[in-house]
């Protein structure tokens, strides 16, 4: 019943197999469709309802009014937990999830990003009717 070295043949087989390790930065950095990575903000769709701010579990997003019907988002990627709740909460689909996960930074200030819309002179293309 007992058998010392039971794994011998299995390990010897692996001598002739390709290693399972992925050569990370060069290949295998693709994430499946729908992976929850960095969020993408579309300022032209935002109506400033602040629902995302209210639901964010880690206070990572701020929506600031910069002009009439013009909003910018301040996203702190260091605080963001990539749960995607803001995407679910947004009524106008102004926030979208991307599968970008390579966000490591040496400089912590680069983790805070601000997404601004077009300058106020051009009207937002997707004007909401019943905001």
């Amino acid at each position: 019943m007992k058998n010392p070295g039971k794994m011998l043949f299995e390990v010897l087989n692996h001598l002739f197999k390709k290693p399972a390790t992925v050569n990370y930065p060069f290949d295998g950095s693709k994430m499946p469709k729908g992976f929850r990575g960095k969020i993408l903000f579309h300022p032209e769709k935002c109506i400033g309802c602040q629902l995302c701010v209210r639901d964010c579990p880690s206070n990572a997003i701020k929506i600031i009014k910069i002009a009439d019907k013009q909003f910018e988002a301040q996203i702190d990627l260091g605080k963001c937990i990539y749960c995607g709740q803001c995407v679910d909460s947004c009524l106008k689909k102004a926030i979208e999830i991307t599968s970008d996960f390579e966000l490591a930074q040496l400089d912590p200030t680069k983790l805070k990003i601000t997404v601004k819309g077009e300058p106020p002179t051009t009207p937002p293309p997707n004007q909401p009717n019943n905001a």
């Binding site: 994430m31 499946p32 469709k33 729908g34 992976f35 929850r36 749960c83 995607g84």
Partner: peptide, 15 residues
């Protein structure tokens, strides 16, 4: 883990 990432959108903390 790959299956979980595909179905839920993350490898841990599936949300």
């Amino acid at each position: 883990m790959d299956i979980l990432a595909m179905v839920t959108g993350n490898r841990v903390n599936y949300g």
